[in-house]
Simulated assay, not measured.
Amino acid sequence: MITQQQLQLYVTQVSNQYFNRPFHHVARFNKRLKTTGGRYLLRTHDLEFNPKMIDLPEFEGIVKHELVHYHLHLQHKGFQHKDATFKQLLIEVGGSRYAPRLAQAQRHLWHYQCENKHQIMRQRRFLENNYRCGQCGAKIFFVGEVDNR
């Protein structure tokens, strides 16, 4: 695992090497990022990265992707994914278009059943007193958690 200072130095080196431009803002980890590799903050111009993707071989591509947003925005050019300038610069520097998928976390499935034996599976629990069966309008009862392996 690398530290915040090492991340800052790494992002600065990648910026100088591939973009020939300095990186003057903050690069940091954000543990709350789940499915994305990183993000560019428009107001502060800082970059945040998912610490779970540090050890992946695609991490340099993620850094390049966020730096493309950073440099194009500071140059007042099209920095969004849909813009041609973004797509062109991303190809030139060899950045990744999408973040790689991480191993999926274990998900819970909650099993409910109505009075008329209709089966209802949900990813989130809910209070069954507040809802009725969508098929017949009968009361819903909680059955249990389903093993989702």
Results as ranks from 00 to 15, higher is better:
16 N>E: 11
16 N>C: 10
20 N>P: 01
20 N>I: 11
22 P>K: 12
24 H>A: 09
26 V>F: 00
26 V>Y: 03
26 V>D: 00
26 V>T: 10
27 A>T: 14
28 R>P: 05
30 N>A: 05
35 T>P: 00
37 G>S: 05
39 R>K: 13
39 R>M: 07
40 Y>A: 01
42 L>H: 08
43 R>C: 04
44 T>W: 02
45 H>I: 03
47 L>G: 04
48 E>D: 10
48 E>F: 05
48 E>G: 07
54 I>P: 00
57 P>E: 03
57 P>T: 11
57 P>S: 08
58 E>P: 02
58 E>R: 08
59 F>H: 00
63 V>W: 04
63 V>P: 00
64 K>L: 09
65 H>L: 06
65 H>R: 08
67 L>S: 04
67 L>Y: 01
71 H>A: 01
72 L>N: 02
73 H>D: 06
74 L>P: 01
74 L>K: 12
75 Q>G: 09
76 H>K: 15
77 K>L: 15
78 G>M: 03
82 K>L: 10
82 K>T: 15
83 D>N: 11
85 T>F: 01
85 T>N: 01
87 K>Q: 15
88 Q>H: 11
88 Q>S: 10
88 Q>D: 12
89 L>Y: 07
91 I>W: 00
91 I>E: 05
92 E>D: 14
92 E>W: 03
92 E>V: 12
93 V>P: 01
94 G>M: 07
94 G>F: 09
96 S>Y: 08
96 S>T: 15
97 R>C: 08
99 A>G: 08
101 R>L: 12
101 R>F: 04
102 L>W: 04
103 A>M: 11
103 A>E: 11
105 A>S: 10
107 R>M: 11
108 H>S: 15
109 L>W: 13
109 L>Y: 12
109 L>H: 14
110 W>D: 05
111 H>A: 07
111 H>I: 10
111 H>M: 12
114 C>Q: 04
115 E>T: 15
115 E>W: 01
115 E>G: 11
116 N>K: 15
117 K>P: 03
117 K>Q: 14
118 H>N: 11
119 Q>K: 13
120 I>G: 06
120 I>D: 02
121 M>A: 06
121 M>N: 12
121 M>K: 13
121 M>W: 10
125 R>C: 03
126 F>E: 05
127 L>A: 14
129 N>R: 15
129 N>W: 07
130 N>H: 15
130 N>Y: 09
130 N>G: 10
130 N>W: 14
131 Y>V: 15
132 R>G: 02
132 R>E: 03
132 R>F: 06
133 C>D: 05
134 G>N: 13
136 C>R: 09
137 G>E: 05
137 G>W: 07
138 A>M: 04
138 A>Q: 13
139 K>F: 08
140 I>N: 00
142 F>C: 09
143 V>L: 07
